[in-house]
Simulated scan of single mutants.
Amino acid sequence: MKKPTLLILAAGMASRYGSMKQIDGFGPNGETIIDYSIHDAIKAGFGKISFIIREEFLESFKGIFEPKLAGKVETDYIFQTFDLKKYGIDKDIERAKPWGTGHAILESKNQIHEPFCVINADDYYGYEAFKNMVDFLTTEADANKYSIVGYKIGNTLSENGSVSRGVCQTDAEGNMSMINERTKVYSKDGGIVYEEDEQEFPLDASTPVSMNFWGFTPDVFKITEDLFVDFVEKNENNPKSEFFIPLIADHLIKNNIATFKVIPTDAKWFGVTYKEDKEIVQENINKLVSDGVYPSKLW
């Protein structure tokens, strides 16, 4: 069986961070967060790394990653563009930002032909998540069985502001029954709340949330394309609308097309949403290095 592919979402604009955080250095030798994800993915058994990027990022990405990865793993580059004609949409819709993470998956449909995992470029996930995902993709995944790694929300917050999280509900079999995108989650008075319509609602610290760590097979592309075309038709006059992966999952679950196994983890997430997060990420990586989880020089 062909090894699964890791699809890294790296086409975002990083507006709150202020620069291209996808290729910012955090490790002792300038390693990016992506470097640690790729290191863990290769160790776990992924056979190819596909970067979903904006075309203008190509030379920067190749310059950073190709010298490190040559001979270690196959690499591939996929462009997230504003071209809608390839999906049969004969319109030019002006936007400043890409169409979102669900659209990013769709852009890879001609280059990914094996089970694959989707992650963010700017999040640290830990080896356990990659190993558990490889196990799922190679033994369980099919057209009707997908997965998501569920992080405890208490392990995923930023000290420097609110975060967006896909809050998961699970059924008795451990499959996701619903996912709600909460766009403003933060700590308050020793607890965790999310804000909606200017009201605050509590969340238990152990609530599983999506950190955009998904497992799919290529069967997902056709239905994603249908959903995306419908989404564009409904949102062509809303330049800030985004076609998120949870919209795909929600449709598949509600229509009994596919299940999403929630793979639990106790790992502590860290990542960069705000510029102020950089120092915290560096401290976390330095601790992992000092604890022997990673060598001081990753490559």
Rank of each mutant, 00 (worst) to 15 (best):
T5C: 10
L6Q: 03
S15D: 11
Y17V: 11
Y17N: 06
G18M: 07
G25C: 11
F26M: 00
G27N: 07
T32R: 06
T32Y: 08
I34E: 09
I34H: 11
Y36V: 12
I38A: 03
A41W: 07
I42E: 02
K43G: 05
A44L: 10
K48Q: 05
S50C: 11
I53A: 11
R54C: 06
E56I: 03
L58E: 08
F65C: 01
K68N: 00
A70H: 15
D76S: 15
I78Y: 02
T81M: 08
L84S: 07
L84N: 05
K85W: 07
K86S: 12
K86N: 06
G88K: 08
D90Y: 11
D92L: 06
I93S: 01
I93A: 01
E94W: 07
K97P: 05
G100V: 08
T101P: 02
H103S: 12
I105K: 01
Q111S: 15
Q111V: 13
C117G: 08
V118R: 13
N120K: 11
N120C: 13
A121M: 06
Y124E: 14
E128F: 02
F130G: 11
K131L: 04
K131Y: 08
N132A: 13
M133W: 12
D135C: 12
F136E: 10
E140V: 08
K145I: 13
K145C: 15
S147I: 10
V149C: 07
I153M: 00
I153E: 01
L157P: 08
E159S: 12
G161D: 09
G161T: 07
V163E: 04
V163L: 10
S164P: 13
R165N: 10
T170V: 14
K184Y: 15
Y186E: 12
G190K: 11
G191M: 01
G191F: 00
I192N: 06
Y194E: 06
Y194P: 07
E196G: 07
E196P: 03
D197M: 01
E200P: 05
F201I: 06
L203I: 11
A205V: 06
S206P: 10
P208R: 14
S210D: 15
M211T: 02
N212F: 11
W214K: 03
W214D: 03
F216N: 02
P218D: 00
D219V: 04
F221V: 00
T224F: 00
E225T: 07
L227E: 09
V229T: 13
V229Y: 05
D230A: 12
E233W: 10
K234E: 08
N235C: 03
S241M: 03
E242V: 14
E242Y: 09
F243K: 04
L247K: 14
A249I: 06
L252H: 14
K254M: 13
I257E: 13
T259F: 02
V262C: 07
K268A: 03
F270S: 00
G271S: 03
T273G: 10
Y274K: 01
K278G: 10
I280W: 15
I280V: 15
E283I: 12
N286R: 13
D291R: 12
L298Q: 07
